[in-house]
Design a protein around this nucleic acid. Structure first.
Length: 287
DNA sequence: ACCCAGGGTCGTC
DNA sequence: GACGACCCTGGG
């Protein structure tokens, strides 16, 4: 495949640091010059911001502009979304100022399911390391710009790994969950197609919860980061913390029920709860 | 050396 | 519904 370039001009809501460091993805890494390189599906890309231009460069299956338009959600008006959310209260306004260039990536469903099962009770550096090792061992090699990159393995390839193989890659207690979930897909007890075509958020969540290693939080992340359900509100330790600090003010944040936070998010942020969650998460975690 | 926490889930009570 | 266990790693 040949290298392609696409330059996006005058895009206000696009800041590589915000997009790649807000916790939605695990396969993008910062380069010396401040740009980011990553792999998604069979594409290898470098993203660089210069003045008010975004330069996408790399090797893609198909036209790079179309690939980027889809993956980076370029047809959505984030300025409008931010304006709506900013009006809700000053906390949100502040968080949006902080992460003004966040966009929700359109990530591969299979990769997102496996990645967020791995994320359970884990930290971001380690999650990234595990996914790298899985890709190196079970994915396909792509050479680009003098370096080797590896695609995230499809379910047939990952299905070759035994529980012990996975444990050896450092998955810890998540080894069995990955093994079982992969097996469920391979045996067609559930399919990516049925998940992708399910319009109703509640019905979709029910299906995701049947997978091993997928609970409330992971299901919400899968729906938000891959299936574009912006009305869900994934609650992790950071979001629980920020919601308690800002609105609930309980002495021990762990005593606050998930239900209470869910209701609060729904009431305040409505169908944009997922976006609000990302701005708040990034704001609280970085600052 | 020790302890703690990290984008939680699962089995058990 | 609550509670502890769970692999592993980096940081205090």
């Amino acid at each position: 495949m040949k290298e392609q370039t696409y330059i996006l001009e005058n895009c206000n809501s696009f800041e590589p640091v915000h997009i790649f460091e807000c916790g939605q993805c695990f396969r993008w890494n910062k380069e010396e010059n401040g740009s980011y390189s990553g792999v998604f599906k069979n594409n290898v890309l470098n993203v660089k911001k210069e003045d008010n231009k975004i330069i996408f460069k790399g090797i893609c299956e198909g036209d790079i502009e179309e690939v980027c338009r889809d993956y980076f959600d370029l047809d959505r008006d984030y300025e409008e979304i931010k304006l709506k959310l900013s009006k809700i209260d000053n906390y949100l306004k502040e968080s949006i100022k902080y992460g003004s260039g966040i966009r929700i990536l359109n990530q591969d469903l299979w990769e997102t399911i496996i990645s967020f099962i791995i994320s359970a009770n884990n930290n971001i550096p380690r999650i990234k390391g595990i996914i790298d090792r899985i890709s190196k061992k079970y994915g396909n090699k792509i050479e680009y710009s003098g370096r080797e990159y590896y695609t995230f393995p499809d379910m047939e390839s990952l299905g070759k790994a035994s529980v012990e193989d996975l444990r050896a890659l450092g998955l810890g207690f998540r080894d069995k969950r990955i093994y079982e979930t992969t097996k469920m897909f391979l045996e067609k007890k559930i399919t990516l197609e049925e998940l992708e075509s399910e319009i109703d958020t509640e019905a979709l969540k029910e299906k995701l919860l049947t997978l091993s290693g997928v609970g409330e939080k992971v299901a919400d992340c899968i729906m938000l980061f891959s299936l574009k359900k912006f009305n869900v509100f994934p609650i992790d330790v950071w979001v629980r913390r920020v919601m308690n600090d800002l609105y609930i003010k309980e002495e021990d944040e762990n005593k606050v029920s998930k239900k209470l936070i869910q209701n609060l998010a729904k009431e305040k942020y409505k169908d944009l709860a997922g976006l609000a969650q990302q701005y708040l998460f990034y704001w609280k975690r970085e600052a």
